[in-house]
Simulated scan of single mutants.
Amino acid sequence: MNLPEYVRLVEVGPRDGLQNEQRPISVADKVRLVDDLSACGLSCIEVGSFVSPKWVPQMAGSAEVFAAIEWRPGVTYAALTPNLKGLEAALAAGVREVAVFASASERFSQRNINCSIDESLQRFEPLMQLAHEQGLRVRGYVSCVLGCPYEGAIAKEQVAAVAKTLFAMGCYEISLGDTIGVGTPNATRRLIETVGREVPRERLAGHFHDTFGQALVNVYASLQEGVEVFDASVAGLGGCPYAKGATGNVATEDVLYLLNGLGIRTGIDLAALSTAGQRICNVLGKTNGSRVGAALGAASRAE
Rank of each mutant, 00 (worst) to 15 (best):
E5S: 14
A243C: 12
M169C: 08
E225A: 14
V229C: 10
V47N: 05
Q158G: 14
S103G: 11
T287P: 02
A63N: 02
V138M: 13
L191H: 09
S62R: 03
P200N: 01
R15N: 06
R15E: 07
K244E: 11
E70Y: 03
G297Y: 08
G236E: 09
A39M: 04
L273A: 13
L259E: 01
G297L: 09
C171P: 04
G13K: 02
G94N: 00
I117S: 08
R123T: 05
I45P: 01
F108M: 07
S143W: 05
K286S: 14
S222G: 11
F108Y: 12
S103D: 10
A99C: 10
S222H: 01
D35Y: 04
E88K: 15
V199A: 07
L87T: 01
A131T: 06
Y220E: 01
Q22A: 15
A276C: 12
R189A: 15
I45T: 00
Y141Q: 04
E193V: 04
F167Q: 04
L176T: 04
E151S: 12
D269Q: 12
C240G: 12
R123V: 03
E173F: 08
A295R: 03
I25S: 10
E64C: 05
A160W: 06
A221M: 03
N260A: 11
G289A: 12
A131R: 07
T184S: 12
L296C: 11
M1K: 03
L191E: 06
K156Q: 15
T194H: 06
T76M: 05
R203D: 04
A99L: 10
V95E: 07
Q58Y: 14
